[in-house]
């Protein structure tokens, strides 16, 4: 799902809190694909962290002798036109992929969640101002929004991250807003209020824990979409600057060599697919394990 829209209706009922770790584990690990996704993610994370040690070569080192080298025992996935080892670039690319994914999710979450929370918890004017702005942002398809923003900001991985983050803010704001609204009406918070508990404390003590399951699921699934979006932007010429390695950019510069060196584009493409798949599966698993009610909404 590229963009997940949540109607406020989904949260009219109080979402049950999941606290039983055992139930979570049982449900989460019951599906093979989910476990597979988790294993993939752990491996990719490991690869990204230890890229320096895992990569057989310097991913930026060019060399005419290795230009478009075919796969061999030295270069398992051959080398690109500048003689750079594909496997090493693939390994370093995992870093870019996770960076784009995690940092974007972090930024958009950090901005979007409080916005939704504030909107849900404040008066009509502020609420409307924030939520209508979010609605307006959601009227722009993510890729177009990111494309225009990236054109404004210029190329480079950080600008792509900023563009993707801004484009995904409204998703988080909407989910949190819906939750805040529904939870606000719940008896126990009303009770808290009457007891004189202040707003901020209510938000942290009661709303955030309730908001956690849907948000974590949304974030996980969003990670996959962000990586796909980065690939799309690369194809259009907006992305990481040389000599950096990013999977989307590798597919894009590699597909010219489809006939003589298909691995140059297939390898990074498979990497993208695998990671996006893994994020989706883990997202599914988290959803089922944390709160099956979210099915159909996330």
């Amino acid at each position: 799902m590229a963009e997940t829209q949540l109607t406020e209706a989904g949260y009219l009922e109080k979402t049950p809190r999941v606290s039983e770790w055992r139930r979570f584990r049982r449900v989460f690990f019951s599906r093979g694909v989910v476990v597979f996704g988790l294993v993939v993610l752990v491996l990719v994370l490991f690869t990204a962290i230890f890229a320096e040690w895992l990569a057989p070569y310097d991913p930026y080192k060019t060399g005419v002798a290795k230009s478009l080298a075919q796969p061999s025992s030295e270069h398992w996935l051959g080398a690109d036109t500048l003689g750079r080892d594909t496997l090493s670039r693939l390994i370093y690319g995992s870093r870019t992929a996770l960076q784009v994914g995690f940092v974007s999710v972090l930024i958009s979450g950090v901005i979007g969640i409080p916005l939704g929370m504030i909107a849900g918890y404040s008066g009509t004017i502020v609420n409307n101002l924030i939520m209508r702005t979010m609605d307006a942002m959601m009227c722009f398809p993510m890729l177009l929004f990111a494309l225009v923003l990236a054109a404004v900001l210029g190329s480079g991985i950080w600008n792509v991250i900023i563009a993707l983050s801004v484009a995904t803010i409204p998703g988080y704001a909407r989910v949190t807003h819906g939750l805040a609204l529904s939870i606000k009406e719940n008896d126990y918070i009303l009770a808290q209020k009457s007891l004189g508990s202040d707003n901020i404390r209510t938000i942290f003590r009661h709303i955030l824990p309730n908001a956690f399951p849907p948000l974590i699921v949304l974030m996980t699934m969003q990670l996959g979409n962000l990586i796909l979006a980065e690939a799309g932007l690369s194809f259009l010429g907006i992305g990481i600057e040389p000599p950096g390695a990013a999977w989307g950019a590798m597919v894009n510069s590699g597909y010219q060599y489809l006939k003589i060196s298909p691995w140059l584009s297939f390898a990074p493409c498979l990497a993208i697919m695998l990671v996006v798949f893994a994020f989706n599966m883990v997202g599914d698993g988290l959803r089922d394990a944390l709160d099956p009610k979210l099915r159909g909404l996330l």
Partner: peptide, 15 residues
């Protein structure tokens, strides 16, 4: 450079 010059810039950068 433009995005068409990405590989060329990477090579220049390396040298």
């Amino acid at each position: 450079a433009t995005s068409a010059g990405t590989d060329a810039v990477a090579a220049l950068q390396s040298y």
